[in-house]
Design a protein around this nucleic acid. Structure first.
Lengths: 218, 218
DNA sequence: TCGTCATTCCATCAATCCATGGAATGACGA
DNA sequence: TCGTCATTCCATGGATTGATGGAATGACGA
């Protein structure tokens, strides 16, 4: 009886998903896609990959079923197949953070010093309701447009230094971005504090809020 | 600035966890470990692996931080590092089931025909409280001892055919095992029904109940 | 119909991974 | 102290994977 063979086939299916999660590059692409659909060249540029390489990785993600494609004009947009994939990605990060001490070292090295104050999601929502806190989403416009917290304003970090006049000096500003391992909010909060604003950064970001069902599209 | 380098290092940490999930053999070991601690040779025998091969896989799991080891006498027991790892494994399976159509084909090929009636966890708990349903855990004794649902009785499948006299003919029997992708309950329920018992099988098993915090140890 | 442009295919090289069996390790028990 | 036994180490060969650049594909727009 092919019981062993059948079991191997089943576990090979599971392993196919695992295998595709085994490359830093693919995870980076997955992280970007968790923010919203993107074309190959956008992804290649953002992830600093060659187009061929990026395409090859995306195809592996697609063959495994984690992402889907849609053609618009002469571009092909890749998107996460569903929120369960985002949940898997979040769980993977959580396990790494929990079980691999070095993850936290790498996280700190990437995000920079913890010199700005962090605001948790519960606290953030309270402040948005009860005070005139400004929620500043500093992700690229495309990602903001795809989905963001209700009431958030968008100024991409690259533009932030030149658009300080748009921000209030008499209210608290909370910067947010892609999620727990994204630099953008750190950078933004740091810049704003240097410029004399009363600024903090959100601990969570679009990925976590997406999983909690808090986001709205445009 | 080594921003790219730092980001790569962070994502390499995440990918290390993904990479170790990319082998069917390791996933099988992980699945077994989700049932409770086991020695290398037990694992090798159950997963039908050579000892060296098994040891090598276990070490990768350990280096990645997903499992821990403990020495007892001349044996080394491997165990899951925590419930978050079990949750990751469950999420991975769920995504595969959801996003890879072939998973269900492989699942059916392995588990055999769906000729016995399935009982979900909510319904199972209701029946255990309100009727005199017998919950029959058909996993190996070691796994049952490590953790099981309160009130369950243990008869490993191998022994089942010879111990039918211990089971009531006037009450419903629900067979349970490791989880959604385990054959044992299917085999047991099939055998019992053939023998004229009023038998069903639980949809969920130890893995799912562990994550729901329903298990008790010995 | 043809040029353009985004994406994919292809061939290649270097690197990594897996399974295997025999030797080495290292803790227990006499 | 020494034999035993579970586990790990090591060397090997076969297979897979990732990055890369140039060629091919295929849809759009003139």
């Amino acid at each position: 009886m092919g019981e062993r063979r059948a079991k191997d086939a089943l576990f090979a299916e599971f392993a196919a998903v695992g295998k595709v999660l085994g490359s830093p590059r693919r995870l980076e692409l997955l992280d970007l896609l968790a923010q919203g659909p993107r074309s190959v060249e956008e992804l290649a540029a953002t992830a600093e990959l060659g187009t061929s390489t990026c395409s090859a990785h995306l195809q592996q993600l697609r063959e495994t079923g984690l992402v889907t494609t849609r053609r618009v004009g002469k571009r092909i947009y890749y998107a996460l197949a569903g929120d369960d994939v985002a949940a898997l990605w979040a769980t993977l990060r959580q396990v790494a953070q929990h079980r691999r001490p070095h993850t936290d070292v790498a996280r700190r090295a990437y995000l920079g010093p913890e010199d700005t104050e962090a605001v948790g999601t519960a606290e953030l929502r309270r402040r948005l309701e009860e005070t005139d806190t400004v929620l500043l989403d500093v992700r690229p416009r495309a990602e903001f447009d795809a989905a963001h917290l209700p009431g958030a304003r968008n100024i991409p970090v690259e533009e932030l230094a030149g658009r300080l006049a748009e921000l209030p000096r008499d209210a608290e500003i909370v910067a947010c971005c892609r999620g727990r391992y994204c630099v953008l909010a750190h950078d933004a909060a740091r810049l704003l504090v240097e410029q004399g604003f009363e600024a903090r950064r959100a601990v969570d970001g679009a990925l976590e809020w997406r999983l909690a069902g808090l986001l709205v599209g445009t």
